[in-house]
Design a binder for these strands. Sequence first.
DNA 1: GATTTGATGTTGACGTTGTCTAGATTCGAT
DNA 2: ATCGAATCTAGACAACGTCAACATCAAATC
Lengths: 205, 205
Amino acid sequence: MHTPYHHGDLPNALRCAAAEVIAEKGVGNFSLREVARRAGVSHAAPGHHFGDVRGLLTSLAIEGFEALYAAITAAAAKHNDPAEKLIAMGTAYVTLATKRPAHAQVMFRLDIVDPEDPELMAAGLRAYTALHDVVAEIIRSEHLSADADDVTNLCWSTMQGLVELQPKLDYLDELQGRKPIKTNDRVRRFQQLILSGARSGARTR
Amino acid sequence: MHTPYHHGDLPNALRCAAAEVIAEKGVGNFSLREVARRAGVSHAAPGHHFGDVRGLLTSLAIEGFEALYAAITAAAAKHNDPAEKLIAMGTAYVTLATKRPAHAQVMFRLDIVDPEDPELMAAGLRAYTALHDVVAEIIRSEHLSADADDVTNLCWSTMQGLVELQPKLDYLDELQGRKPIKTNDRVRRFQQLILSGARSGARTR
DNA sequence: GATTTGATGTTGACGTTGTCTAGATTCGAT
DNA sequence: ATCGAATCTAGACAACGTCAACATCAAATC
């Protein structure tokens, strides 16, 4: 029974363990020692790869943005119609947050990740640009007067807000005896409202 | 120089100190002992009023929802036109988050506040209902076919998303050489897009 | 093959943290 | 004056993140 001294893939094992801990307990109850225990290394080992807790969480956030980029571009690629692309992207955004609660919980947390990390900024911008391009395509192909930045920012804000509020909205539906709405349907309704607004000629430039 | 044994208004002093610490360091770097130090009491004193950290943060979240309710209803009261009420409420929502960053940071944090606290749930529902009522008024007075729940949820999601993303959006504007947008203007543009969508006849029921 | 170097991992120390408990203080009710 | 409860303190404890010294290992160099 021989355990090698070197783990072999510790950064990834630590990110996985971190995601697990956060998914189970929430990021507010995160513990680096718990992560190290789950990865099977000493409590100080993560420091060699990520520097400190902030470094590990920043790495997780980067991974989250990369996964987001992959998800929204893959979702968009399944459609030809730009409006359907946008709706698919919105759905992919919210679905990813549900599948990867840990990543969703850290991606926009200025207090616990390093917002100025170049890799993080690049990954965030990349995902944003993918969304912006589809919005711009809608506006161009339909000759809309709405501002692509405004519509992109509105879509992103909406999706991010929905990620955060989803449990609350589900609870409100239950409280008021409304039939539970699937995430896909809720996203579609929201995106359709936004698109209708953009199509109606509302001036935002 | 006599310091009374009893503080006299410690729960409030602790909430103020907690808000201060969170505003300065972010909620991820919150420390109950730091709060106690700032309030001038021993480290174990907050426990007598709030039980544990979770209790204190839950109390702060309640205070946040109450302030939100006060802000959005006051903003709405300055207008007669329901659409202007909605825009004013959106602006008040985002402005409050800017003025009270600590409260904004805890209000929707399921991991560190008690989401099932009856007072918290009641305060949240009260604020939500105020928004919902204005949306319903718009829909009724303009004979719109949009679903009041959907439009309310979309507005709330958008505002909440904007609260979280504001620094990122400001940074993107700067990165791309765009003229900085005032919060009021951004909120107005978003709400106008949403209202246009609702007015256009987009079916969400 | 032997040595060196740097990446990677361990161990232990330390200051800080939140929680718990026993004791102290105060105030209102009896 | 006494009692009880709310409120506060002080100390103990386990857990935490970080730091530094040391250990291990693998690749590069001689």
